[in-house]
Design a protein around this nucleic acid. Sequence first.
DNA 1: TTGAAAGCGCTACCAC
DNA 2: GTGGTAGCGCTTTCAA
Lengths: 339, 339
Amino acid sequence: MAVATLSDVAARAAVDVSTASRVLRGEEGQRVREETRARILAAADALGYRANPVARALRTARTHTLGMAVPQLDNPVFAAAIAGAERVAAARGYALLISHLEDALPAKDAYARLAQLNRVDGLLAATLEEDAPLAEALARAGVPFVALNRVLPGACSVALDNIAAMRVAVDHLVSLGHRRIAHLAGRASGWNGRLRLAGWRAALRAQGIRPDPELVEHAGYTASGGAAAMAALLARVRTPPTAVLAATLVSAAGALRTLRQAGLAVPGDVSVAALHDGPVAELVEPQLTTVALPAEAMGAAGAEALIAMIEGGQVSDATTLLPPGGLVRRASTGAARGR
Amino acid sequence: MAVATLSDVAARAAVDVSTASRVLRGEEGQRVREETRARILAAADALGYRANPVARALRTARTHTLGMAVPQLDNPVFAAAIAGAERVAAARGYALLISHLEDALPAKDAYARLAQLNRVDGLLAATLEEDAPLAEALARAGVPFVALNRVLPGACSVALDNIAAMRVAVDHLVSLGHRRIAHLAGRASGWNGRLRLAGWRAALRAQGIRPDPELVEHAGYTASGGAAAMAALLARVRTPPTAVLAATLVSAAGALRTLRQAGLAVPGDVSVAALHDGPVAELVEPQLTTVALPAEAMGAAGAEALIAMIEGGQVSDATTLLPPGGLVRRASTGAARGR
DNA sequence: TTGAAAGCGCTACCAC
DNA sequence: GTGGTAGCGCTTTCAA
């Protein structure tokens, strides 16, 4: 016998399939004689019965599968978010279907395809696209969704509190005596990049320091981008900054390279800090001071919210902003020069 | 109207569902009048019809979904393998369900659960477990499978040619004049770790150099493991090696840290090289010379093999060993001292 | 408390 | 060439 079906179990227990279904689904309010229930359970156990999820899905129009679209797999933020989402999904009886959506090509109805092809009950969208196309593409998919790693106006969103995270980093640098703090920003068009820049401004102002636009350079999300931006900033500015706060770990790593080549000591001449903590922070020299970002929790919260929408039958548009995990002090930051 | 079903299309085209199914499935040998076919296609198009994969799966007992189990998501080797598998799967009309299987807990029948819960047509197993339990757990799943990133005797396997890769690295170091080449090995119990150690030995012998067991230290797969192993080796050995070949990128990064702390210049005093190329190689100082490993191709080949087994109805036990991608020469290797 | 039966949407076999 | 129809394995009214 290949795999036992419900009717095999019913036959063995000498009951109807409907009765077997009732007890096997294990609902509370079912009135089934204790003796019958035991017989069915025993039969199921003996046959190693497991309900066929495909048949169940066809009947109930629920696949118990969450689709998650990410732009890259090797990015530690997404890797952690996936892990978090998977943990919650598994705990709630859902499978997680991960789809690596190229952000380059404007995948207009990639979400709809993803949803239709795999019949997911909901979508977790962690991609980098612009707001309007994303919202439209997601709506087209016809399933509940939550935007991850950014706030999508009008949609249920779970993201990181970039403003608060930048505040932690800036406060740390200021407490070390820094006042000329440069910012290596992310993509100007990215949600996180934009807010980290805004956070840099706000945190400086809160400290009574005027944010100097000359100290901002866009570095993107790569090491070479960070290196190039650092070089451009050094070349452009009259007085070099005493500290550099990068929007991401890898751009900070790139900046470290440029500073080394320029003969500037870190943290002797310039302190460097970055947002998001990860293994890379300990691989570079000097090891980077960072602000930990709760990427795993973001994935978990997103899955939680999505499942609530699916099971509650209500679409929410609540926004959750996760506070930073705190400062991880390492060797790349120190007291400001001449202090 | 929610989603158009086959019978909606049939009704609109004024044909029977069976006829509609025939043409929509788009098989070749079907004898359908051209006019009828066009009418059905038009109706499907007008209604935006997409076959319900759940219903199809129930009927055909094929989900067109591949399950892929990986031990970690943030490991660049696995991230690349996933990307490769996904590319092939998508091209062949399959979805990829990624499951992050904790290797820590001996997930005896995690594969069976994965297969049963999600009804995958086959499994791609990239986990680190021992051979015997893995083979048993996989067999228990009841679907075709291929072992990825290791050779599982008797099973279809796709892995990297570690011996050849180590040979490339050793030859490079020898060509620079090195003869005392230490090896920072992976886990002694891991398939790749074991073969890289064997490759180190074989490549040295091929160069007429006796592999000195004193120059081997197990470092595992972490930066701190690499740092500790490097320190242990330095402390233990009378004459330090002139070159260090690490089994992985991150253990090499750890070793770099220890060498720096020991006041040894890289590559002035000691050259360092590692297997597997990745972004991290360019983040460390000095940038690491590596041997590129075709991780993306490994994922792709695995998916290809699995789909062939699924569609061919034949289980294969062929082993594919992928040759290394070649030496990526960077700053961490140089001529041996006194040469 | 249990059973009968009607489908979910599709495919595949067999008539016509 | 095209239509009828019997399920795939399950859930869910509705009766008994």
